[in-house]
């Protein structure tokens, strides 16, 4: 289980996160939502060790992560913009990740099959479409069977078919006990997939709990309306 306790991050005098405490459980998808600039990306980067918290803790299975970054062996990350060196081929990008981990990928070939990437792997990344790069990014994120998948706007660049395949992949990972953290502005994706919701507003958690509970509390049958209700209550 991954959890944050009182996570706070200041950039200068600007508080990007204030006292954020959340927990990500195996087999559950937690959706992080919030307006632009609410701290979603900063939270993700704190979990990945890309941003150092000003205060608070990130705990991996109850322990502080080591400074060498070995805890990241269990994390798969799919960033919002899949940017790889343009003059490398997709196959070389995957080889780079494998070599950095000094370990054979557990399921690279099956993911390449799943996302139908065979034809594109020998092309230079700069010639690939945004959607194909996003699929390549999904393979990078999943090829070591992570126990935590962090997905930042994963379906934004995917066409309908690829998006469906991707969601199928995420569901399969959840069944296998992987914890999934996902940010998206597409509420229907969360409606379909999320078990828990964290609503961030101005770096503060406005709501953290299950989707079901959120709908019951706000008496709204749709997630979008329930979130709007919470935001409205916060504004009032």
């Amino acid at each position: 289980m991954i959890e944050t306790k009182g996570l706070t991050k200041y950039f200068g005098s600007f508080a990007a996160l204030r006292d954020v405490s959340i927990a990500l459980h195996p087999g559950r998808l937690t959706g992080i939502i919030g307006p632009n600039g609410s701290g979603k990306s900063t939270l993700i980067k704190c979990l990945l060790g890309l941003v150092r918290p000003s205060d608070g803790l990130v705990l991996h299975n109850g322990r502080l992560p080591d400074t060498g970054g070995s805890y990241r062996a269990h994390i798969g990350y799919m960033p919002q913009r899949a940017t790889f060196p343009g003059d490398l081929t997709g196959r070389e990008v995957l080889a780079l990740v494998s070599k950095l981990r000094s370990e054979k990928p557990h399921r690279m070939d099956s993911l390449i099959d799943l996302f139908d990437l065979h034809r594109d792997l020998n092309k230079r990344v700069r010639t690939l479409s945004g959607g194909t790069r996003q699929k390549l990014s999904a393979v990078v994120a999943g090829m070591y069977d992570p126990t935590l998948l962090i997905l930042d706007e994963p379906t934004a660049g995917l066409d309908t078919g690829a998006s469906k395949v991707f969601k199928g992949y995420v569901s399969e990972q959840l069944k296998q006990g992987c914890a999934v953290l996902m940010t998206t502005h597409i509420i229907s994706d969360l409606e379909e997939m999320a078990d828990d919701i964290v609503l961030l507003v101005d770096g503060t958690v406005s709501y953290a709990g299950s989707v079901r509970e959120l709908k019951l509390t706000t008496d709204r049958p749709l997630l979008e309306a329930a979130v709007a209700e919470i935001l409205q209550q916060g504004a009032a």
Binding site: G68, G69, Y71, I75, Y77, P79, T83, F84, V97, L100
Partner: peptide, 13 residues
């Protein structure tokens, strides 16, 4: 962006 992606792998900075 790619440096960020490399830094999400289990290796030191």
């Amino acid at each position: 962006d790619f440096i960020e992606l490399i830094l999400t792998q289990p290796i030191g900075r």
